[in-house]
Amino acid sequence: MNRLLQVEGLVKTFGTTQAVKGIGFNIKEGRCTALLGPNGAGKTTTIRMLTGLLKPTEGKIEFQGLRPGEDQRSLLGYLPQSPAFHNWMSGMEYAVYAGKLCGLSAGEAKSRAKELLGRVGLADAANRKIGGYSGGMKQRLGLAQALIHRPRLLVMDEPVSALDPIGRREVLGILKELKEETTVLFSTHVLHDAEELCDDVVIIQSGQVALQGSLSQIQSDHRRPVIELKLEDKESSMEWARSFVERHQTDDAWRMIIEDAHLEDRTLRLTVLDMEKARQALTEELAKQRVGFVRLEAGYSSLEDLFMKVVGA
């Protein structure tokens, strides 16, 4: 698969603090990539360097297929975390304005703007002033203006973080369609969105790449069978859980089947080595000890578990 964007050894220093410490990754044509990381990991800084709004202290950002003399920004569509428009313009005016700035002719900009505003569900509000738009509508207008010149790469910074559940559904729905047509890179700290939308993930932690690869590969590499047991709020059950956490490491029989156990509030999480055996042994143990539980669930670790492990939280 073609590489569209190649980032190497990207460093950004603000005064004495190093926000980004040598990040490198590739974005492949036609894939949707998520830049994951906790708040303050350097996601926004990295994205701003890609868009040219921030000059990297060191490192290389290379677009493939850029004709000599062509501005790399003409290949990019960018949607910042909370886009600010000119509130005195209407949505339609802004979209046309954005199109013309990208070098479209007036007629072309108008027809593209109309098409895109319809697509993001702003056809009815197109002639209203942006000042009266809701947060979700602004985000959708942001998408329309970013796509106006058919960019090869759509870059978004936390596209849905600031939205309410309804606005979030709307924008995610549009993104799902879009990723079929163009290459997408977006940053998020919401793992669920990443799992839902992307093909590749780059997890960054304190300015460095902690893990990267395709989502399916990462999931199959790091997926662990997990048993979750939610206990009743009774002292005897909790007592058992606490003793079990200590016991599973020393007891040989348990050590063979359980890799890790920890108790959080009333939930006991067991990362197991052999699901069959663990399920058997655990249910027997629960019956024998008369442990009261509310829920018992066997499944696989999610991206969130992996994320927590990687960022060391």
Binding site: G52, L53, R73, L76, Y78, P80, S82, A84, H86, C102
Partner: peptide, 11 residues
Amino acid sequence: SGATSLVLVKP
């Protein structure tokens, strides 16, 4: 206001 970060990423 942040309006420049939308305009100045255009070519």
